[in-house]
Design a protein around this nucleic acid. Sequence first.
DNA 1: AAGTACGTAAAGTTTTTTCTGAACGCTGAA
DNA 2: TTCAGCGTTCAGAAAAAACTTTACGTACTT
Lengths: 182, 182
Amino acid sequence: MDTNQERILEKAQERVIETLARNMDLYGITMSTGLLYGTLLFQDKSMTLDEMGEALGMSKTSMSTGVRTLMDLNMVEKIWKKGTRKDHYEVNLDWYQNFIDLFSVKWRHASEQNVHSLKKSLQELRALQQSEELTDELRERVELSIRRIENGLDYYLWLSRLIDSFESHEIFQFVPKKESDS
Amino acid sequence: MDTNQERILEKAQERVIETLARNMDLYGITMSTGLLYGTLLFQDKSMTLDEMGEALGMSKTSMSTGVRTLMDLNMVEKIWKKGTRKDHYEVNLDWYQNFIDLFSVKWRHASEQNVHSLKKSLQELRALQQSEELTDELRERVELSIRRIENGLDYYLWLSRLIDSFESHEIFQFVPKKESDS
DNA sequence: AAGTACGTAAAGTTTTTTCTGAACGCTGAA
DNA sequence: TTCAGCGTTCAGAAAAAACTTTACGTACTT
């Protein structure tokens, strides 16, 4: 058995795993959890928490929380495996869908919160604007704030439609999955 | 002077500022820096580091680093102001462009790193694949890894084209900035 | 040339996050 | 019913990040 070839394989895998993991902070995912994701990615079979802990040299507790984070983002799923009592996990191989789910879950949520605040404050400021006895200086400030908020709302409505186009996969009509050459 | 009206205005602004700031971790931006951004947003005039520190009750050093973070993302810019020795900063009011810049800067960078690793490892594995004396078991593992990596590359090429469409503003043809009603 | 005002780098402190190990509850087996 | 194996909760330890204070370099003023 040529262990040298094996080492080449593992080296190649590790490079990818580490790079992916390092950049997953964009997903709000910690490096360790990213390593876990990468490890699962190159696994042909599903893994148990113990196997993960073994592979990463980390505690089972960490694997438990890490795998839950990944499940919340739909990047990993729990697999039914009869005959064993342990939970088995598998990576979701559809990178596009992973991106979409992440984007939907995180950005949609933030977007909704922001819109809510913006609308509420806009309403208050519009009411204030109606008031007759408003100094010129204050009226000016109120109107500036209203403009700023309206700008923000425009943007978040757009962002919401963008996310819609991801979720519905319509975005792939515009930016197709595969390009012919290159 | 009715200080009550002023309080309403400030309350409305603070709500927005705080919500925006809280959600800016999606941008990899800390809450404090988010508050700084929000503060600048409702400012009619440019601000100096001292004014920011004053407004947020934080050290000038923090303002310095915070403002640099925002500048790196093109969300804030330094303003020429003659007659004073202090630097002045202003928020970039184009939310769409802020989003695009953020996305470009962060995701493009991550994407490029990932593609680089994926390609390098793919090359190594393809070479390994050529090798005649490869056990069936190892060949199987190599081929699985290659498939995984190819999947990833497909995705990142797509992502790159998506980012292109943001940077070129072509995305607005597909998801227009303004919708007629609603 | 000396002094002052400014932004930032470096070092140190505080706060937050991540990780671990022990203890718990649940489920299935004996 | 008891026991063993499993995932998870919780409290504490370790690590990382954020923030402040001090100190420095530069550029303008006098």
